[in-house]
Design a protein around this nucleic acid. Structure first.
Lengths: 184, 184
DNA sequence: CCAGTCGGAGAACGATCGTTCTCCAGTGTC
DNA sequence: GACACTGGAGAACGATCGTTCTCCGACTGG
């Protein structure tokens, strides 16, 4: 089997399991079984579990931000694009198997002990914040609005994860609408 | 030694370690050493690690909400009391050893596998939200403001934890001020 | 002073997990 | 057909961890 294909299979299995149950609750044996790869192959591709975890976060980061950007790109009006971020969050929260933000979860689990994970969480959150900042600038809104919008989104992710509900997205969107209005 | 005293010592050690390094990264041996208790005594007080973890969350919940309420009670004006929540968060974020919200971290670590932990996280967040709802009502503000304020606070906790900065509290407070103003 | 009990220190046990190793079937080459 | 090689299945190893057990010193009541 092509090693690129094997890598994707490993990451598919790892993502399902790590995201669904937590990193530490999933052994390499479970990844082996779920991926259909041999342990030997798995360790050829990722010399240690830590590498697999980091690759999981990296690939998910790319996909997550890509999906968000693709959804937002479907709207033309710059102010509408900002609100579309919260629409997308709502859809994400409602997906089966949603279990909160993978990075916040990973940070709670490994942030204190795995520097590679902590660094990726910071990078992911910073990238998301920068993305929001770009949308704010494109809408001609004051840059100071970025922080609050980012905090609303983060709060919605956490709350949706803990309560297993997509309602926080709508709350956050309404608050965002108010903030945008007050800055008009 | 009085068993009530021993219990407090165990919880003091557990809180330091669990909060600072994560629950799974801390073995019962570390709690034993840090508390100065014997393993036998520890298991008499808490028949399993799970019990200790839950007791840690319970005691911290009581203290956390108590400290917040005490700070807020120092302000008379009902609208000022709402903003005082964010002042208090800022002070908390700046404390040495701050490492984010203990419940969000615990949820990321154990939410999927430990129902007792997940339940406590939900209860804690719901209690905090209810507390905010009370402040909103006392200020004669529309109840719909509770959600956004709660999300801002949650977002600030997560972001402060990940970035190791207390700045998110000020951002959240400014956003809250705007929301309060727009609802005046 | 002594039998009995309690609690402390830490060794021991059993399970789990990350990682490596062994064995072997299948394959391509001469 | 013999041989070297690759990769798979899963046993094995070493470490860690939650939990229990053993041993021993210290204290109590007579």
């Amino acid at each position: 089997m092509d090693s690129a294909v094997a890598r994707e299979r490993a990451l598919d299995a790892a993502e399902d399991l790590f995201y669904g149950r937590g990193v530490q609750a999933v052994g390499m044996d479970a990844v082996r079984t779920a991926s259909g790869l041999s342990l030997k192959r798995l360790y050829q591709l990722f010399p240690a579990k830590e590498h697999l975890v980091e690759a999981y976060l990296d690939r998910r980061d790319e996909r997550w931000r890509g999906r968000l950007a693709a959804h937002v790109a479907g709207h033309a009006d710059p102010r509408r694009r900002l609100l579309a971020v919260f629409d997308w969050l709502e859809g994400w929260f409602a997906e089966p198997g949603f279990r909160g933000c993978a990075w916040i979860n990973a940070y709670g689990e490994l942030g204190a002990t795995a520097p590679g994970v902590a660094e990726r969480v910071r990078a992911h959150k910073e990238a998301f914040r920068d993305y929001l900042a770009g949308l704010v600038a494109d809408a001609g809104l004051p840059a100071a609005l970025t922080g609050p919008l980012f905090l609303l989104a983060e709060g919605a992710m956490v709350t949706a994860g803990v309560t297993r509900s997509s309602a926080p997205a709508a709350e956050a969107r309404e608050a965002a609408r108010l903030l945008l209005g007050s800055a008009a």
